[in-house]
Design a protein around this nucleic acid. Structure first.
Length: 439
RNA sequence: GUGGGAUUAGCUCAGUUGGUUAGAGUGCCAGAUUGUGGCUCUGGAAGUCGUGGGUUCGAUUCCCAUAUCCCACCCCA
């Protein structure tokens, strides 16, 4: 049997790894500015954690978890998302007694057994933030501003922010009555999925994509218009905060969430470049979650950002991302001088220089070819003559007529100075060296 | 779980109305008079034509199944 990567997983190869490192580093840096601290949680947890924390009735838990029994007979599951594990850690480590609000961020892989399509994988990466202990709308706006700053710093534009409020358990109850009353007369015209939803989860009917259902729900009452006065005040506060921060948003009555402990603020960053999965980042408030998991009543809010989708969006918007750094210098070796070349190469590397040399006993011509293809900026030849004289010619592979005769002993300092400098500065450093070295 | 398209060299793809040793481009390796890349030329390695069955004298080609990839439904980041 041929071994291949499991369906829905993929290798991240050296050519793209710098893009990943970049989005990771910028995310960590921005989070740090906002006071969010990194947390690392287990890749798998007791299955019961996700049943409670994600919701036993959700598709994620019912159909999509990688669940297995360990050798002790305990049911374990690979995490399908990050929030449940973070909340578990929050409780287990007594973070309720830490100074409030507790702000955490994470960078994880998550696993869902789903059919694969654009922007959706079985193993995928998420960045996320969770903030515990702040109930007012200020932290909602702060979290959204963190994301805006992050996207802006990466160079992303044209990604729209959609917000809404899904109220609290109290006002949701009465809204469901209103919604059901509205839908009842049209029930037989809804699609079969929606007829099931009418019993299971009526709110989902609102974002059904069937034309018939869309026609019916166009004038359906929206959750946002049926929230209680406390929830209204919270949502208004969020809008005011976003306005004063100068952040644009779209009030989107069609955003829905299924679970009881998701409350009030919901938001999504949506793009048109990630297939039908337009959501790059989804978040919201979960004031009931910590209590539902057995902790003290603690308000919380968070988001999860799909890294693969983010990178797709960056590519679609043609944002330039860092490329792997090529070697600064390639040492071509002739005349059985491999040992001496290797020790000079090591000296250069100790000095901080990205240096490569031939290890395959190739001809000089082949080494030059290889140096050119490696993207090395400079090349120098090391043979019996050079070692006897203690000097070699340093030559640019990128620019004509940029050369200098260099003492072997000066190479580490000189190349360290040249590394990652603009061409003009490199030329000047080489000129200065040539005029002062007196060779 | 459901539906559509795809699968031939490391990569991007031709091709065979079913017929000897299956092709190109690119990449890789080597060479074009003795120690200097990129351009050009020459040569080489590399494919059980996704896998398993079936039809046939003969299958990479036709049929069935299956796997994987891409896209969509469901759902979600």
């Amino acid at each position: 049997m041929k071994i291949a990567a499991p369906k829905g997983t993929r290798d991240i190869l050296p050519g793209e790894i710098t893009a990943w490192q970049h989005v990771e580093q910028v995310f960590a840096e921005i989070c740090g500015r906002f006071g969010y601290q990194e947390i690392r949680i287990p890749t798998f947890e007791q299955t019961g954690l996700f049943q409670r924390g994600v919701g036993n009735t959700t598709d994620i838990v019912q159909k999509e978890m990688y669940t297995f029994e360990d050798k002790g007979g305990r049911s374990m599951s690979l995490r399908p998302e990050g929030t449940a594990g973070v909340v578990r850690s929050f409780l287990e480590n007594g973070m309720a007694s830490w100074p409030s609000p507790v702000r955490l961020f994470y960078n994880i892989t998550a696993f869902r057994y789903e059919n694969v399509q654009k922007g959706r994988y079985r193993e995928f990466h998420q960045f996320g933030c969770e903030a515990f202990g702040a109930s007012g709308p200020a932290i909602d706006a702060e979290l959204i501003s963190l994301l805006q700053l992050y996207f802006q710093t990466l160079g992303l534009s044209r990604t729209s922010l959609h917000i809404s409020s899904i109220g609290c358990p109290v006002c949701r109850e009465s809204y469901l009555e209103v919604l059901k009353k509205f839908l009842q007369p049209h029930l037989d015209r809804l699609c079969t999925d929606c007829q099931e939803r009418f019993v299971k989860n009526p709110m989902r009917i609102i974002d059904c994509k069937e034309a018939v259902c869309r026609g019916i729900t166009r004038d359906a009452p929206a959750q946002l218009d049926h929230i209680c006065s406390d929830c209204q005040r919270h949502f208004q506060g969020l809008c005011d905060n976003l306005d004063s921060l100068g952040l644009d948003y779209i009030i989107d009555r069609k955003i829905v969430r299924g679970l009881d402990y998701y409350t009030r603020t919901v938001f999504e960053f949506i793009s048109e470049n990630v297939g039908t999965q337009g959501t790059i980042c989804g978040g919201g408030r979960y004031d009931g979650l910590v209590a539902a998991m057995g902790g003290p009543p603690t308000p919380g809010i968070g988001f999860a950002l799909g890294v693969e989708r983010l990178l797709m969006e960056l590519a679609a918007q043609r944002v330039q991302l860092p490329q792997p750094a090529p070697p600064t210098v390639y040492l071509a070796v002739t005349g059985s001088m491999e040992q001496q070349a290797a020790s000079l190469c090591f000296a250069l590397r100790r000095a901080g220089v990205r240096a490569q040399t031939d290890l395959l006993d190739r001809s000089l011509k082949a080494q030059m070819k290889h140096a050119g293809k490696s993207g090395a900026q400079f090349v120098l030849v090391l043979g019996p003559d050079e070692l006897a004289a203690g000097t070699t010619q340093l030559r640019s592979l990128l620019r004509e007529n940029v050369t200098a005769v260099v003492r072997l002993a000066d190479l580490p300092d000189l190349l360290c100075g040249l590394q990652d400098r603009p061409a003009a500065e490199q030329d000047k450093i080489i000129d200065d060296y040539a005029s002062t070295s007196a060779i």
